[in-house]
């Protein structure tokens, strides 16, 4: 009982911080800065939000960004998980790919943009590729370390119970054992990929998109609209994370509850 009450109180603490930030922002904008170009006030931003909503632009931007994001993250999952599994399972494959991956990994995703334009042109695939580069490495590394961390006793137990082929051991033993680590990798990748989105849309792959619109309104010096897109990027990113965590915890990692907390 006390726990749930405490939780509620803590929630109010968080909400009060948000309200406090809003108040400070408002005071700073109205009293100190007094220039809506340098710092738009919360009401300015709200009005801009309503305006954008009425124009029907927001939904379109969201859709276009989702296409870019799904292409990038989807490709990163499709490539990253199998590569991570292969490297985690086979020492030979690890020795083969590790130097290449360690060399490519420190290259910032945005450094790929020139070649992305040459290879894919100004298409959704270009934006997707930049997001892909940002998202794939956390997925590979977490899948790999998850597989490396599978206790030997699980694999041996599996073998004693008639699960002897590599494919079956990966599917029925190693993958479920590594899933918490893989899920953590996907979460990090979602975050990094989402951050790459703004940069990926900056070089004009489309007329819409949350990142594209942010630059567009900056060029028009409508800074209140820029803030709307900034906040939307934050809120949507947060929502992805919450939805992902909710589903993972509820359907795939239920067995973990009670192990730590």
């Amino acid at each position: 009982m006390r726990n749930s009450e405490e939780k509620k109180n803590n929630q109010w603490l968080g909400i009060s911080a948000l309200l406090l930030a809003l108040v400070i922002w408002e005071i700073a904008a109205i009293v100190i800065v007094r220039n809506s170009f340098i710092l738009p006030s919360p009401p300015d931003v709200f009005i801009a939000f309503v305006g954008l909503l009425e124009k029907g632009r927001l939904l379109l931007d969201f859709e276009v960004s989702m296409v870019h994001f799904v292409i990038g993250l989807g490709a990163a999952l499709l490539v990253g998980i199998p590569v991570g599994i292969a490297m985690g399972w086979s020492h030979r494959f690890d020795a083969f790919l590790d130097p290449l991956i360690e060399l490519l990994r420190p290259i910032p995703p945005l450094a790929w943009i020139p070649f992305v334009i040459i290879w894919f042109g100004l298409t959704a695939y270009s934006a997707g590729f930049v997001i892909f580069i940002g998202a794939i490495f956390p997925i590979i590394i977490n899948t790999y370390s998850g597989f490396r961390g599978v206790p030997r006793i699980f694999v041996e137990t599996g073998r004693m119970l008639g699960c002897t082929k590599s494919r079956d051991l990966i599917r029925h033993v190693a993958f479920p054992a590594a899933l918490p680590s893989i899920a953590a990798g996907i979460r990090i990748a979602t975050g990094v990929g989402w951050m790459c989105l703004v940069a990926a849309e900056l070089f004009g792959v489309s007329n819409n998109g949350l990142g594209m619109a942010l630059w567009f309104y900056y060029d028009l010096h409508q800074m209140d609209c820029v803030v709307v897109y900034m906040l939307l990027l934050g809120i949507i990113g947060l929502a992805f994370d919450m939805i992902f965590r909710y589903y993972m915890d509820r359907y795939f990692l239920r067995w973990q509850t009670g192990e730590v907390a």
Binding site: E156, G158, L161, H172, W255, Q256
Partner: peptide, 30 residues
């Protein structure tokens, strides 16, 4: 390894992601 031989390890050999029934049924599932 052969299915004519059963093995019980010292500890921590149960698959934590499977409930008790699914742990016992693992070999049959294979």
């Amino acid at each position: 390894p052969s299915q004519k031989i059963g093995f019980v390890f010292q500890e921590y050999s149960l698959f934590p992601w499977r409930n008790v029934t699914d742990n016992i049924a693992f070999g049959l599932e294979m």
